[in-house]
């Protein structure tokens, strides 16, 4: 049997998250003795590259009804392919697309669903998936009792492992209902690094004293190839846009590097960032709780430290 992996695309290319989930499916398949089928829906030029991370088979579906984002039709398409492939395990990325579709697929297939997986499932004693809970403050080991299983994997949580295959590529057709959603306008951010996908993030809080002081934050972020983020008070005061707010009630991120400048580290903020691999805290207050969760810290005034960091980054050619 095959594990079916939904490989997301963006701007007519296979999305970075697709390699992560294909690799996840491939590592799981080595335990369960299955093969891996990657499903690509819509136009993408480089779908063959999915075989580098363990896809044995790549199915490409092109259907005019799926040219706009129609979650219920995407779920129909995925369920039909799962049926045709005899797949009992379906894998998504737990990104905005996965959040929109995975629950629909789970209901359609009468499958148990675990979202936000952070490890390859254990299969020795039942099928058990480790997932992040309590906004990253804990993990749960969740057993799926149903014959069919749907898993969505947290972005940047599981290493992708190269596993070159010579995949068989084919096109498949699906039989879809009518689209009920009329898309009026799409705004895709083109220049900035989307925060949820960023590997490095520079974030600042109330310690910056006002929106006019964000120039140095943006400059540092640009030098490091990082996205910018902010704390809740900063977004509430409209110093920065809402979509930059990270924390328990904003968005949760798990970059490789999170630099927090002028953020004290309230528990609600930590909940959104504590799965970051390396945390750097720059704060004037040596007692700021954030230092307890940090890997590296500087006690100092952001207005002195950040310009020095910018100079140093330029000197080091970072």
């Amino acid at each position: 049997m095959s594990i079916l992996v939904f490989a997301n695309t963006a701007k007519n290319e296979v999305h970075k998250s697709a390699y992560e989930v294909v690799s996840y499916g491939s590592q799981l398949a080595q335990k369960t003795g299955d093969t891996v089928t990657a499903l690509v829906i819509g136009d993408a030029t480089n779908i063959s590259s999915l075989s580098d991370y363990g896809a044995d088979k790549i199915i490409h579906v092109k259907d005019a009804k799926l040219s706009s984002f129609q979650p219920s039709l995407l779920a129909q398409a995925i369920n039909q392919i799962a049926e045709a492939e005899g797949s009992k395990i379906i894998v998504f990325s737990h990104d905005l697309t996965g959040k929109a579709i995975a629950p629909l697929v789970a209901v359609g297939l009468k499958a148990g669903l675990v979202t936000g997986a952070v490890a390859i499932p254990e299969t020795e004693n039942g099928f058990i998936v480790k997932k992040a809970v309590f906004s990253g403050k804990a993990y749960a080991h969740v057993k799926i009792n149903t014959d069919k299983k749907v898993i969505s994997v947290n972005p940047n949580a599981v290493e992708k492992v190269e596993n070159k295959k010579s995949a068989n590529e084919s096109e498949a057709t699906v039989n879809l209902g009518e689209a009920r959603i009329k898309v009026i306008e799409q705004k895709i951010e083109s220049t900035d690094i989307p925060l949820t996908e960023a590997e490095k993030v520079v974030s600042a809080g109330r310690g910056l004293k006002g929106p006019e002081n964000w120039g140095m934050i943006e400059e540092l972020a640009k030098l490091l190839g990082a996205a910018t983020a902010c704390s809740r008070p900063v977004s509430d005061m409209d110093w920065r846009p809402h979509h930059e707010h990270v924390g328990q009630t904003g968005i949760a991120i798990r970059p490789n590097l999170y630099i927090a400048i002028g953020i004290s580290g309230a528990i609600q903020h930590l909940a959104g960032v504590n799965q970051s691999k390396v945390i750097v805290v720059i704060n004037t207050d040596p007692e700021a709780p954030f230092f307890k969760s940090a890997d590296y810290g500087i006690v100092g005034d952001a207005f002195e430290v950040v310009p020095k960091l910018i100079e140093a980054a330029k000197a080091m050619n970072i």
Binding site: A10, A100, I181, V183, Q186, E189, P194
Partner: peptide, 8 residues
């Protein structure tokens, strides 16, 4: 949505 927003 992934990478941006959409009005529908």
């Amino acid at each position: 949505i992934q990478g941006g927003t959409e009005v529908l």
